[in-house]
């Protein structure tokens, strides 16, 4: 029989050793966190990995994986960040931890433009009954995901319907209004050559396109009227058709180019001037 005093001693010994081991790990985590706060991401990752290596009981699994993910994300190493956010998610001990790591995973996916993956994660969260109270936050990132998918109209709808952010909603609406319809530019050039270019503001190109098509159209039709069928086929095929199809491709290209300029300008504003939370 072990006497009561010995039992107490053993208990104190057992609990103190574990407390001391725990406290060094705690210190290590604080140190790594400090490095992260000071934007020393490379060193922060090293110290967090060290913590993980010595944390045999996985007491800091979630925190370390989560912070490593954030450090990689800050260093624009998105693949690694996604990997560590997924590990954090697997090691989460409560719903809040799970939600945070999932959201960061989605935000990193938005940044690396794997928007389908981000959409999947955000929809999973949206359909999860545990996170009904966080619907607004999820929708906010869904809106951002639409922005990075170049779907400004949908982004506007999300921001507007959920009354999430008026600045973002207005920006998305403006961008969507400014955007040119690629299909309209293309198909109206089928009807009147050069019209698609006029629609996108490329007046010189539109006028030239119209001029070439009128000229070669006239020459082709004239050749057929004068019974010079072979000449008509050759001019029609090698000149008129070439300029006609070129005009359609040109109109489509202009619309795509202009849309890219508009969305890049908006993204530039979001990156450097927008003050709200960003992915």
């Amino acid at each position: 029989m072990i006497s009561a005093s010995k039992r107490i001693l053993l208990f104190i010994f057992g609990s103190l050793t574990s407390v001391f081991a725990q406290s060094t790990l705690e210190q290590q985590f604080k140190f790594a966190n400090q490095l992260f706060t000071h934007e020393k991401y490379f060193d922060a990752i090293t110290e967090l990995k060290r913590l993980q290596f010595f944390d045999i009981d996985n007491k800091f699994s979630f925190q370390s994986n989560y912070l490593i993910g954030k450090s990689y994300k800050a260093g624009a190493k998105f693949d690694e960040a996604v990997n560590y956010f997924t590990r954090a998610e697997m090691n989460s001990e409560n719903d809040d931890d799970y939600f945070t790591s999932k959201i960061f995973n989605a935000r990193t996916n938005i940044l690396r433009r794997t928007t389908k993956q981000a959409e999947k994660i955000l929809n999973e969260l949206l359909n999860d009954p545990r996170f009904i109270s966080k619907e607004k936050e999820i929708n906010y990132w869904i809106g951002w995901n639409y922005i990075f998918s170049d779907e400004w109209e949908k982004a506007f709808e999300v921001f507007n319907e959920n009354r999430l952010d008026t600045t973002l909603a207005e920006l998305c609406k403006t961008v969507d209004d400014e955007m040119y319809s690629v299909n309209f530019a293309k198909y109206c050039s089928y009807l009147i050559p050069g019209l698609g270019q006029f629609y996108t503001g490329e007046y010189v190109s539109g006028t030239l396109s119209l001029g070439w098509n009128i000229l070669f159209g006239y020459l082709t039709i004239n050749a057929f009227i004068e019974d010079r069928v072979f000449d008509g086929i050759i001019i029609g095929n090698f000149l008129w058709l070439r300029f006609y199809s070129g005009n359609i491709q040109n109109a489509e290209k202009f619309a795509i180019q202009k849309n890219l300029q508009i969305s890049n300008k908006a993204l530039d504003y979001l990156q450097y001037q927008y003050k709200g939370e960003k992915p």
Binding site: L9, I12, F13, T17, T24
Partner: peptide, 11 residues
């Protein structure tokens, strides 16, 4: 003895 063992538990 106890205190030396305890401190040795620190990593």
């Amino acid at each position: 003895l106890l205190s030396s063992i305890m401190f040795s538990q620190q990593i």
